[in-house]
Nucleic acid binder design. Structure first.
Lengths: 113, 113
DNA sequence: GATTTTTCCCTTGACAATCTAGGTATGACT
DNA sequence: AGTCATACCTAGATTGTCAAGGGAAAAATC
């Protein structure tokens, strides 16, 4: 029984997931990806080719800050944390997302007009 | 108070919304768009530049059939209906979508690991 | 009766985000 | 010595959506 998936769906939600994952604690890129995968019940898969460009543009936009350090396993790693702007961005994206999936739900559940 | 929105989110769900809207009854393109907008509580907006290309590629893939006819208002209009393949596609996309938003919810609600 | 709005179709080109597929390097395990 | 997991990165292809245009006919407004 293969698990169907759709990459397109991640469009527009990846940044929110990253912001959320960084909310409260600093993490390095690889750790962010693993964390999202685990906390989604292994339903979501984060490709490195999507992750790193996303981290870079989010830092460019001022939502993230980074510093080089050492991971738990002793390897060099870049740790990201939320800025104030990132915190605000997270709140807004969660709001938009919630409204979006509720709207989609109304359509596919065919609620009485 | 402006209504924030995010176009990116529609990525990958538009086809499902179209399939759902055609499930049960035949409709023309313009009517599909209006129907989705209304049944989403005017939360979703369907651009014609997204709609028509989507209809065409879905017909190419064999999910939809079309015929020319006359709309309720007497204008010429192209009516689309679901094929069997389209019906199956709808079921699959709804399944994927449901799993997807549940996975995202788990991440952003930070459920206990 | 002239003008504007609404309905209905379409296409082209830009854009933006993701994925594929490649690369580098180190440490741990076998 | 070789493989796996960790950890970073980029170039290019792909794809779907959007913006912005266009046409035509009926209905509504002036």
């Amino acid at each position: 029984m293969s698990k169907p998936s759709k990459k397109d769906l991640l469009h527009g939600t990846l940044e929110m997931l990253i912001l959320e994952t960084l909310s409260g604690e600093e993490r390095h890129g690889y750790g962010i990806a693993r964390r999202i995968e685990r906390s989604s019940g292994d339903e979501l898969q984060i490709e490195e080719g999507s992750l790193y460009p996303a981290l870079h543009r989010m830092e460019r936009r001022g939502w993230l800050e980074s510093r080089w350090g050492r991971s738990e396993s002793g390897r060099r790693a870049k740790f990201y944390s939320l800025t104030d702007a990132g915190q605000r961005q997270l709140a807004e994206e969660k709001d938009i997302w919630t409204r979006f999936w509720k709207a989609v739900s109304r359509v596919i559940e065919n609620e009485p007009a």
